[in-house]
Simulated scan of single mutants.
Amino acid sequence: MADPASSLAAAGAAHILTPLELFQQADIVVKAVMGLLILASAWGWGIIAAKSIQLAILNARAKRLLKSLAHGVPLTDLSETFLKVQPNDPLRVVYQSMIDENKRSAELRHSAAQQESLLDRVYRVGQLASSNTLDRLKGGLQSLATIGAVSPFVGLFGTVWGIMNSFQGIAASNNTSLAVVAPGIAEALFATALGLVAAIPAVVFYNRINGNIGQFGKSLKTFVEVYGVELSRQLSKGETHGRLAA
């Protein structure tokens, strides 16, 4: 004779709802909430993947560049390296902005005061270009922050709505059996789960990407300062038209 407890467990296992079934059986409002959270999660992962790949490439390139400069490679030899990357590459943008300022000041570097003013302008231009570059790199992070902050509450709304419907079903059927209540509650809680699935990666990678952007910002700052040192050295040698302007 079969064990009644085993039979009950087998019957329960046979009626376990899959995530797809939970979605299909949910109320239209809960379905809308679930769909919104799925889209938010997909959007967040798209931003995460794009930013992570982009920053990994940028930080690796910046690390190689600074390593080359530390080994004595002149900045004048970097032009060919920068010509191989896209014009909108952050490192090239910062480099080109300083080169352009140096060229525009070709006739304003005769006296010591003019040279000092040139160094200050080039440094300021480099810092401004770096700041603008970092602002562009942060594009999309606001969306991640929004997903991380709002998704749990959207999921909670779906849960509350689903539980309300479950209680209304209990009242209408006058049946408090767990078999009647459980599916509706499971659908409602699934909305909360989706909210957390969307929010947790968004929060984790928001902080991680921000850290990677900060690391790249430090590399940009170092590069600008190294360029200023090299330009100062060229001016001190009396190369008024300096190879750095080439």
Rank of each mutant, 00 (worst) to 15 (best):
L141M: 11
L108A: 11
A245E: 08
G148H: 04
N165S: 13
N212T: 15
S6P: 06
V226A: 13
L156A: 06
R92P: 06
P183S: 08
T176L: 15
T192W: 03
N59W: 06
K221Y: 11
L189V: 05
N175T: 06
T76V: 10
P90L: 03
I99W: 09
A5F: 07
V180S: 12
A13D: 10
F216I: 05
Q215P: 04
A26T: 07
L20R: 10
N102Q: 11
H71K: 12
M164T: 01
N165G: 10
A145W: 05
K31H: 07
L20N: 09
L66H: 00
A60Y: 07
R136W: 11
K237M: 14
N88C: 09
Y227F: 11
R61A: 09
R104Y: 07
A246T: 15
A50V: 02
V30G: 02
P87L: 05
L119R: 09
N212Y: 11
T240E: 11
S151F: 00
V197Y: 10
G148F: 00
A172V: 09
N102Y: 08
E187I: 10
L36E: 05
A191P: 08
F167N: 01
A106E: 09
A26M: 04
I99H: 09
P152D: 01
S6M: 14
A5K: 07
R64F: 12
S105E: 11
S117H: 11
S97E: 04
K103W: 05
S131H: 15
M98I: 04
V125C: 08
Q114E: 12
L22K: 01
S143D: 11
L55P: 02
A112T: 12
G139K: 14
T192P: 06
L20Y: 11
F216T: 01
I28L: 13
L66M: 04
T176F: 14
S177F: 13
A9V: 14
N132F: 08
Q215V: 14
T18F: 09
A11D: 07
L141C: 02
A198Q: 00
A246F: 12
L91D: 00
G214V: 00
V93S: 02
A62F: 01
L17D: 05
A70S: 11
K63G: 14
A145N: 09
